[in-house]
Amino acid sequence: MTQPIEDYALIGDLMTSALVGRDGSIDWLCLPRFDSAACFAKLLGEEENGHWRIAPLDAAIGEPCTRRAYVDGSLILESYWETETGTVKVTDFMPQREIAPDVIRIVEGISGTVRMRSTLRLRFDYGHVVPWVRRSDGDRVAIAGPDSAWFRSEPPVRTWGEANSTCSQFPVTAGRRVAFVLTWHPSHRPRPEPCDPFDALDQSLADWREWTAQCRYEGPYQEAVTRSLITLKALTYAPTGGIAAAATTSLPEELGGVRNWDYRYCWLRDSTLTLGSLLSTGFLDEARAWREWLLRA
């Protein structure tokens, strides 16, 4: 069951982005760029179109987490599940990449013991292609034509194939952290150097807070303004300075209607409104980069 679009949270690395539902499922992810084909496309279809859910083992399909919020000054999402046996936190983020895009999910026990489940269904080309998955170097690698993705968990957890998916069940006790890393790269290239998920978390938090520290806004609703600016920044494609209108595609303005747009383009009107917000709050570099993009385009 697909959730309302307003129930999704955004994470990204300034080259692409993912949408995370309240139930702990990533239902939309295009790799390696905003305008690439999706490998998780449940947003537009069903579970078989690709998704990745991490939630307590006993949580029903579609059952939302207890609460969630972004870490202050960042695009790092924290979701809390309070169960009868304990409380667990799932941290989702995409570090600003150097070479390959990573989706990192860290499960941390807060109290008691909670049995968790991870279900990964990779479906390339908007859910049309089921990849070939095999073991390699202790991890899983999924290959489908030009696309490949490495799936790594630290510490290792028991995994098995189920309905053409990769699943794992594991207990989390208070103070324990389990990390999952999904890394995309072209299938004809060697595997990228694996990142340390915990170092990446610290660096990602530092990167975002360094950026938000430039904000010159001093007025009411400071927290809401900062959150809006982070969201706008997340839609910027760093290599060129272009700004995507939104992270979504093919969502009609009304069911059955013909106004069915792909918003993963740099629409001049939308970008101008975004730049107005960034400029008025002190973010000049983004305006310069967008202007250079416009002149090239």
Rank of each mutant, 00 (worst) to 15 (best):
C39P: 00
E108I: 04
E6D: 09
L275M: 14
V71R: 10
E154M: 10
R296P: 07
S277N: 13
L255F: 15
D285L: 14
Q169M: 04
R209V: 07
I5W: 05
L294S: 00
D196I: 05
I11S: 08
Y265M: 03
R259H: 13
N164D: 15
D285F: 05
C39E: 02
L279P: 01
G138R: 05
E286H: 02
P252H: 06
P194F: 10
D92L: 09
W290F: 15
P192C: 15
D27C: 14
F180V: 01
W184L: 13
T240M: 04
A244K: 03
T236M: 11
V172H: 03
F34D: 02
P171H: 14
D202C: 10
W52C: 09
P171I: 07
P155F: 14
A287M: 10
S36V: 11
P194C: 03
C167F: 12
W52Y: 06
C30T: 08
G127A: 12
V133S: 02
T248M: 01
L75E: 12
A163C: 13
A247E: 03
T83I: 06
W184Y: 12
E6R: 05
E82G: 08
I11E: 11
G109C: 13
D262G: 00
I106R: 04
S165Y: 11
G73S: 07
W52K: 01
L232Q: 06
D285W: 13
R117E: 09
P56Q: 10
P155C: 08
S36M: 08
R189K: 14
G24I: 01
G256M: 04
T166R: 06
D196Y: 03
R176N: 14
A287H: 01
G242R: 04
H51K: 12
L57W: 06
V181N: 07
L120T: 10
A244I: 05
Q203R: 05
L31C: 04
G12L: 01
S36G: 09
Y70S: 02
P220S: 15
Y80W: 14
G276T: 14
E286Y: 15
T85H: 03
C215K: 03
W150M: 09
